[in-house]
Amino acid sequence: MTRVDAPPRTPAPPVEGVTDTGVHWRRGDWRAAEDPAPPPVAAAGPHEVRVAELHRRRRVGRRWVRELVTARLGVEWPGFATVATHRKPVLLGGGGIDVSISHGAGTLLVGVAAEGLVGVDVEDEPFAAFGRRSLVRRMCADDERAFAATLPDAVRRRTLARAWTIKEAVLKAHGTGLARDPREVRVGADELAAAEGGQGPEWTVVHVLGEAVVVRHP
């Protein structure tokens, strides 16, 4: 039997903002978000608990998108279109609104914009995955790997986590995901260096406006 009681948690309200190019975003702990669905019963096994968590995370993400679209863009909710698994969420109608949803271990990040393409990505500490060479080799171009190799371990993992959120957000904005090699999305040394000294999750909002790719860590 799997214990499903949630650990004690101080719910922190999600934070919201808007980038200088008009991407409205919301970030917070999806487990602390209100959800009308009942939690899994105490006798639930690990499969049921995992599925319930995935569904809850999905519901919260979609609700946040809906709230941003209606409250911040002032648009009547058009609803989500049905898309294949692993595809970028799409809204019904031809309103031109683009949306993106990302989750880390506990952090949820959503972004919406009335024009252009939006991609968001968040990674939670301690960024353990970014200590794996097999990942770094597949995500970084040679110069990015060379720069990261000069950094102390903890700084390197955060720097690589930031690089990943940029790459992933760009790929998500364009709707390709990992069908495109992330090594093709280049991250400059100044952007990598800026991650040092950061705290909390690493997260990126990308707004593609024509040929321009605007990267923000608001």
């Binding site: 995955a129 794996r132 097999s134 990942l135 080799r137 995500m139 990992l178 992330p182």
Partner: peptide, 11 residues
């Protein structure tokens, strides 16, 4: 997720 999918490819 995508991070671990890519890690698995490397592995």
């Amino acid at each position: 997720d995508s991070v671990y999918a890519l890690t698995l490819c490397g592995d």
